[in-house]
Design a protein around this nucleic acid. Sequence first.
RNA 1: GGAGGGAUGUCAGAGCGGCCGAAUGAUCCGGUCUUGAAAACCGGUGUGGGGCAACCCACCGUGGGUUCAAAUCCCACUCCCUCCGCCA
Length: 433
Amino acid sequence: MIDLALLRREPDDVKAALARRGISSSQIDEILVLDAEHRTAMQAAEALRSRVKDLSRQVGEARKSGDTRRADEVAAESRELGDEERRASEIADAVGERVRTLLLDLPNMPAAEVPDGLDETGNVELRQWWPGMDEGAPFPTYENHQRVPHWDIGAQLGLLDLETGAKLAGSMFPLFRGDGSRLVRALGAYALNQHADEYEEIRPPTFALTETMTSTGHLPKNQIEMYAIERDDLWAIPTAEVPLTSMRRGEIIDEADLPIKMTALTACFRREAGAAGRDTRGLLRVHEFDKVELFAYCTPEQAQSCFDDVLARAEGLLQDFGLPYRVLDLCAGDLGTSSARTFDLEVYSPGVDRWLEVSSISWFRDFQARRANVRYRPAGGSPTLVHTVNGSALAWSRIWAAIVETNRQSDGSVLIPPPLQAFFGGRTHLRSR
RNA sequence: GGAGGGAUGUCAGAGCGGCCGAAUGAUCCGGUCUUGAAAACCGGUGUGGGGCAACCCACCGUGGGUUCAAAUCCCACUCCCUCCGCCA
């Protein structure tokens, strides 16, 4: 949520920033008009309220001094004023609620450095990486044996059983088996181990209350994207960002504790309602996938370094696995609602011949923290909203696909990335049995 | 699932219809004392909103209700604790 005080103070700055995301200035003007209306109505109601309180006090005093008649008179007067106050408050509350609703609808302001553009065509590729690049090697060329889609490889080697997954939970719920399952486990475990030096490992609940989903901004807007367990008012989390962001909801954190860095491996659930029929093969787009998330609460001053750290760790994992990737600087129009700045990491996967998004790293400024009301107390100052930063490191289903396709050998086996071989008892290849 | 107890400020913990935004203690900040520190003592220390300001309003788990007046009474819900049952 954008700061209403900032909106009042610097309406033109906010308009200019949001115009980059295609938000019209009339939308902001509407809020400002309603806000002025709200304040007027509120003042009227509060003046009445103040009077009622004063009269009530007089009733108490009259009672105490035994003047029952005066007490009754004043009570009657107060009762009338009270009715009036109730009506005035209802009007003020209704307008205030409208302001809040409109404000919640506004996306975050893009950071100044965010490139212009209204959709993904405006994203800027910052760099690419591939194995051997530093030694001057060119971008890899791929052999025919690498041009096989992962679903075929998975079926050949008995690593991936999409049919059985569909039998159990419907299509787009993958079932990994044998070494395929072990690879999923190895990826998550390897990443958690890598992050353990600075990030506290968290194993949060897989489900979240409506209240929790709302405070991160995933509800009510993206309701259609979420799996719901209605009877218990629970939602399956679409990312560990949801529980992690809410862990300190409503709290005031000691400044000395910041930054608070956490990592979590969870299943992530997405209905992909808006993407029906797109990328439905294999693991490109699935309803459930494992992901390791990195998350930080921090001060505004720490935000840049936290962001850089998450990015470096996500890239580091891709380099450990030897997967070519590119870094995209998302343009203003392609930013997620809550984000002020986002870098996406895309891995090149030769079997499907596509760049696959495997990480999204975002700096939210205080946008999320305002909703979740997470603050810290700066030295000698009053409570201030924290900044939040998070990013995937990484989303495993697509990494799984990229590894299997990239590392496929001419004999049909798949080379296990060396850092993961320890999880396979030292074996170097996945082979059919 | 059954029975009971509870939810109050950064924390602990009083209050159970009328200057209660809230005792007391801890924390933290400032001061006195001290060569310095500790201790002791004195003073200050919630959040949010409105108003140029004086000041006003809201907030005692959440949402309703009663009343001239609610942290305090009533109803519903949520969460926590204890005991019993059931169960990984």
